[in-house]
Simulated scan of single mutants.
Amino acid sequence: MNKAFVKESDQDDEDDGIEGTEVALPSGTKNYITKYGYAALREELVHLVNTERPDVVQIVSWAAANGDRSENGDYLYGKKRLREIDRRIRFLTKRLEIAEVVDPSTQPNKDQVFLGATAVYIDKAGEEHTVTIVGVDEAEPLQGKISWISPVARALIKGREGDTVSLRTPSGMDELEILEINYPDE
């Protein structure tokens, strides 16, 4: 089929949307991240640049040499995957450049909740929760890692064991009692 009749773009689709795990930082705030989160993002960037991207480039080159690109699935998928990888590389590079790395093991006030702390609290329904306060780019709520800008983290930050803090929820105010605070050891 003639390329004139195929909707295909060789340009990066910058407006395709956000990757899914990328969260915008509130304006005027720093990109605080734990040293563990920074290392994980750095490791992902190195893997993309040194392993995954070269592999995809090799596949795209091979597929392009096979002739008609308009119906070549390897070529079309490879180009799309290459754009996704390049977009993620740009994102990671920017986020790592502006990162403010915090080492939670060196926190002087270990009796208060700050970035990197693991806090155990109980809500007014009597349910016990364990959360670790982490950077925006390392948050995984289903694993108990919540971003420092989340409502729960903001309520807990600067709290001490035994404190009761208020959390505004869609269903009204909730009271959280901080039971335990832990920081990672070196």
Rank of each mutant, 00 (worst) to 15 (best):
L142D: 10
R69W: 07
V101Q: 00
V102L: 15
R81K: 07
G116E: 07
E127Q: 15
E71D: 10
A63L: 10
V101C: 00
A64I: 00
K79T: 03
T106H: 07
S70R: 11
A99D: 01
A125T: 08
S105R: 12
G67Y: 11
I149M: 05
A117R: 14
D68F: 15
T93H: 04
V60I: 13
W62M: 09
L82C: 00
V57L: 14
R160V: 07
L92N: 10
A139Q: 04
A64L: 02
A65G: 15
E100P: 04
A63I: 09
I157M: 15
H129S: 06
Q107F: 08
W148Q: 11
T106I: 09
Q58G: 14
T118H: 05
E128G: 06
T106P: 01
H129Y: 12
K110Q: 09
F91V: 09
E71F: 11
P108Q: 05
A153W: 13
G144R: 08
G144T: 01
A117E: 13
V120Q: 15
T132F: 02
D86M: 08
G116L: 10
E100S: 14
I146K: 14
K94Q: 03
L167W: 13
V152A: 14
R160G: 10
G172N: 01
P151M: 01
K145R: 12
K79C: 04
I59L: 15
Y77L: 03
K94T: 01
T132A: 01
D111P: 01
V152P: 04
Y77F: 00
K124S: 14
V120L: 13
R95V: 00
Q58D: 13
R87W: 06
N72R: 12
N72F: 13
L76Y: 09
T132G: 02
V102S: 14
S61L: 12
E127N: 15
V56A: 09
S70H: 11
D86S: 10
E100F: 15
G144E: 02
S171T: 06
T106D: 06
T132H: 04
A119H: 08
N66G: 15
T130H: 11
T169G: 01
